[in-house]
């Protein structure tokens, strides 16, 4: 069935011209885009022809560009006078992130609330401020995608500066949302054309939405033994938190070098047995069930209470990479059933 709208006027850019536009962008900004090695990840682009456009989503979420897996916070130097500390020099050059998906754009808006707010985490905030986002809509989806559960539209560019739809031979410029986005469009004005096209805009089919409203706010009703039972297969390996676009727990450590050293932070995960263990030996979440409960509560109870947003975006990465095939959608369904008991 041909469901194209015939002869509609759209701002478009052909695939060839897209490369030229990105080349031009690269002349002004550091450009990050999906690159394929063994998996597809966001990487700094040296050659535009290395950009992978044939991707569903990246292995690691774009949080890596704002909240890297390890990040220096400051260095310290010792001399006879004492100790001096110096903040890590962070990104100064403005950069463009090309290819972010709607779920991941939502995830960044969630992380903005965590790292922003009254006490600003400048290490994250500065990188965010210096990055322009070009999103691409999802006209195809993975069978692990369930963004619509969280009200995310795979064809909406919420949270992006520019939003494109891949129409095969060309991309439609669907949204230009900010002044920074408009400046980038200006850079490409010789390539972007307004044309009458036979337009197709159809989202990939994602998992039927889970009734999340019946879960958030009712999590306390879930029976105690549910968490022990449900978490039984979990290996506490932490991959779900590493690939999660909203997980932001971190550890802080020092590395001593000659006459000084650095303090850095590094991703950590709440499923780790020692995550909350205190020096006294006390551990508030001693069992795997308690830690599993905490993880779900954080996303589906604490996040809504604190920030009025669910801490999951339905990207499905945790489903794809779990070594024992734990599926957050199934757990949510079981939570829903348990609440109704």
């Amino acid at each position: 069935m041909d469901n194209r709208e015939k002869g509609v006027e759209r701002k478009i850019i052909t695939r060839d011209d897209l490369s030229k536009w990105l080349e031009k962008i690269k002349g002004h900004f550091d450009l990050y885009a999906p690159v394929r090695s063994t998996v597809v990840n966001f990487g700094k682009i040296e050659r535009v022809d290395k950009i992978c456009l044939d991707f569903m989503n990246t292995f690691l979420p774009p949080k890596v560009l704002f909240f890297p897996q390890t990040e220096e916070l400051f260095s310290y130097a010792r001399d006879s006078e004492g100790i001096e500390v110096k903040r890590a020099e962070d990104l100064i050059k403005e950069r463009v992130l090309f290819g972010i998906r709607p779920c991941d754009a939502r995830a960044l808006s969630i992380l903005d609330m965590v790292f922003g707010g009254e006490i600003q985490d400048s290490h994250y905030i500065e990188k965010r401020r210096n990055t322009v986002l070009i999103g691409i809509g999802c006209t195809e989806s993975l069978n692990t995608c369930f963004c619509s559960t969280f009200g995310i539209d795979p064809l909406s560019g919420e949270g992006t500066d520019i939003f494109l739809i891949d129409n095969g031979g060309y991309f439609t410029i669907k949204e230009v949302n900010t002044q920074r986005g408009r400046s980038l469009i200006d850079l490409g004005n010789t390539f972007i054309k307004t044309e009458k096209v036979d337009h197709r805009e159809e989202a990939g089919s994602v998992t039927v939405p889970i009734n999340i409203a019946s879960i958030t706010g009712n999590m306390e009703k879930v029976q105690e033994d549910f968490w022990n039972n449900t978490s039984d297969p979990c290996l506490s390996c932490g991959i779900c938190t590493y690939v999660c676009p909203t997980c932001h727990c971190f550890d802080v450590e020092d590395e001593e070098k000659k006459n000084g050293g650095v303090r850095f932070r590094t991703w950590d995960f709440c499923m780790s047995k020692d995550f909350a263990r205190m020096a006294s030996g006390e551990n508030p979440r001693i069992s795997k069930g308690e830690r599993y409960r905490h993880r779900y509560f954080h996303k589906f109870d604490y996040f809504p209470k604190k920030y009025a947003v669910v801490g999951c975006v339905g990207c499905g990465r945790c489903i794809s990479y779990c070594p024992v095939n734990m599926d957050i959608r199934k757990v949510l369904e079981r939570i829903r059933e348990n609440i109704q008991k």
Binding site: F115, I119, C249, F250, D251, A276, M278, H298, Y302
Partner: peptide
């Protein structure tokens, strides 16, 4: 209360007790 803490400023999630 005492809890394991890292950042001290509400970002790292170590010291959560409920919400």
């Amino acid at each position: 209360l005492e809890r394991k803490m890292k950042c001290g400023v509400g970002k790292c999630m170590r010291c959560s007790i409920g919400e």
